[in-house]
Every structure is written in structure tokens, then in C-alpha cells.
Amino acid sequence: MYTVADLPARGDLNAPAQQITNAAGTPVAGAYYIQNAYKDAKTPNMVCVVLADYRSTDTMGELIVVFAGAIGCFFVLRRKRS
């Protein structure tokens, strides 16, 4: 409960994650994506651009996780055909 009370409030515009540049002067990811997503990929949906372009390696690992889960279920539950 103490930890939760120290988080920034819901909807706070001054939270560190919502700034354009952080304390060290480098750009913060969220604001950078909002400003440059349409310029880079001509796609209005920013979530789509971040998912499939900026962080596509993450998404590839996630698809491999789905495939591994499917194969795991297949080998755990497969029985010999009667």
C-alpha cells in the first residue's frame, strides 16, 4: 500500500512516463512514438506501428511463445491412436 501511494496519480500529466524528455535530456519513448509514428510508417494507429515496427522483435518472440505453447499442449496430451 505504501508503494502504491507513491505512484503518480491516475491521469497525471506531469508523471515521468508522459514527458517529452526525461531528467537526463534524452527523449522518452511514449512521446517519441506519438510524434513520429505517422511520419515513419504512414499508419494512423500508433499501437500498430509500435507493435509491428518499432518493437517487432518483441512481437516475434511472442509469436514463438504461442507456437511453443501449442506444441507443448500437443505433446503433453497426445495419445496413441486406438
Binding site: 515513419d40 510508417a41 504512414k42 499508419t43 500498430c48 509491428a52 515496427d53
Partner: peptide, 12 residues
């Protein structure tokens, strides 16, 4: 930029 558009479509 438009190649990125179609690349995203293929990946999806």
C-alpha cells in the same frame, strides 16, 4: 514509409 505500411500488413 509506404513500404513500412505494407511490411506491417504482412507481419500482422
Amino acid at each position: 514509409a509506404y513500404m513500412r505500411y505494407y511490411g506491417i500488413l504482412f507481419v500482422e
